[in-house]
Design a protein around this nucleic acid. Sequence first.
DNA 1: GCAAGGTC
Length: 616
Amino acid sequence: MKKVLCVAEKPSIAKAVAGHLSGGVIRNTRNTGNKYIKNYDFNYRFPPPWGECSVTMTSVVGHTVSWDFADEFRRWKDCQPSALFDAATKQFVSPENKEVAANISSEARNAQILYIWTDCDREGEYIGTEVMDLAMKSNPRVEVKRAKFSNIERAHILHAAQHPGVLDERQAAAVRARIELDLRIGAAFTRWQTMLLQTVRGLDEQVVSYGSCQFPTLGFVVDRYKRVKNFVPEPFWSIRVIHKRDDINVGFSWDRGSLFDRMAVMVMYEKCLAAKVAKVVSVVKKPTSKWKPLPLTTVELQKQGSRFLGLSSQLVMNIAEKLYTQGFISYPRTETDQFDRGMDLRALVGKQTQSHAWGQFAQGLMEGGFSQPKNGTHNDKAHPPIHPVAYVAPDKLNADEKRVYEFVVRRFLACCSKDARGETTTIKLQYGEEGFHTTGLVVLERNYLEVYVYDKWTSSQELPVFTPGEIFNPTEATMTEGKTCPPGFLTEPELIALMDANGIGTDATMAEHIAKIIERKYVFARPMGRSGGEFSPSNLGIALVEGYDNIGFDMSLSKPFLRKEMEEKMKKICEGVMTRLDVVNSSIEQYREMFMKASQHSDVLKACAQRYLTPP
DNA sequence: GCAAGGTC
């Protein structure tokens, strides 16, 4: 009988896959040197030519192998920062991963086949090559296969086991290019600018880091700050009509909205008054609905967590991680906003019927209210949307955990419910030569809104009856004056949305980048009650962005374009259009030129920092 | 004393 070693990216997947393949008959569960990892032994019948095999299923815990510079470049004074662009690098297993690596090597020793079950995304493909290398160290002749799966539903996993594929070397190469570039560019610029600015007041003890994600994130905050600061309010004028009927004051808005030309508005307003009467042009009733939300992704969880729960994105992710490891919710790092057709969503809804808070609603879904969730447009092919997998009694969780869990559950139940339905009434007026309108809403069926308490959709004041063709004398018509308002400082949900839209970081790391630029004292977070808080840059943060902008680069270091370019090059590696070395070499040359330009004009950056950091 | 990416 052949021995097959299966390796997943994380312990939870190993456990789930072992459960499905073994049919519940696990011969042996062995502890390893790592407290999270277990080895599961069982038999499984693979398709020919393998047939019935003795299987060991285990996992790593994310990356096992790290990259850094060779020893002679590790200390900051050992070399010029610019030397890091082509300094020797090395891979190694960090002390906390020693047992993980040893487990793979020793389990692979007597296996004929290594079957890789890492997540089916780019990082997973690379982690798969780490596992392969570790296994081949002890068993160079082991045959390597790769499972293709996108969720851990039983039938899906069994199908994956029956259809072994191969590792995608291009995707792994793309990740390796990314690792090398981030290391070289990040370390070179970080050392250089830290040492350059050390003599500036207040920065003597501080690391001033550069990272391809940190800087664009900082750039978003500075950008908004400048827009707020440079904002010049502009006056505008409008016309508003009010008519009192059945004791209701109905306000009508001007079809033109508002104009910046006072005289023009004045003339139009006078014409209205001269006309004396207004005429009802149309009264239109239209069914309308408010759509239930899409299945929950990580980015959405972080944005809404900040908006509705008043928790920072990082805290939300830490809590979600904990709820996941305790088996209460599904994997919290996902880009997918579509549920697989095969998933038994009703079973998951059923588990929530015992809740005092939303149990009745869940019961209602079980008794006919259920409706298949909408599909979004994202699918990472690795994880389903975030959803509750078990019911948890509220007294088992602390206050913040309870709120995150509750959000995940309510969101899920909302997805499985129906859109809210209502009816709008739109009344259009002609008054002089101008058009006016008003709209009323009656909510007819609340549906998902009953459980998704975060969305508001309320009936506006009911409109009195107006009849098409009717002519009346408006109670009041006024010319109003307003002023344009500056935008607010950047909030956390807005920042996450910007990062997401511009490809800065991944769902798993966006919160870390935000935390990092706070730790580096580039930005401050002002807590703002329930909406989560807003960011403004420090003097140092502004100085860095402005200093580099003053030097002047074709592509700004604090804008997302450089990162986007790197992402596009990675895609080209995946498509086979470029090789890893093409990408690494061309990017290194590009950054080396920028680095040289920066060092030639270091006085510009330094002067900028001095200007912002020296008290007047 | 550097990065960003996994995961715990």
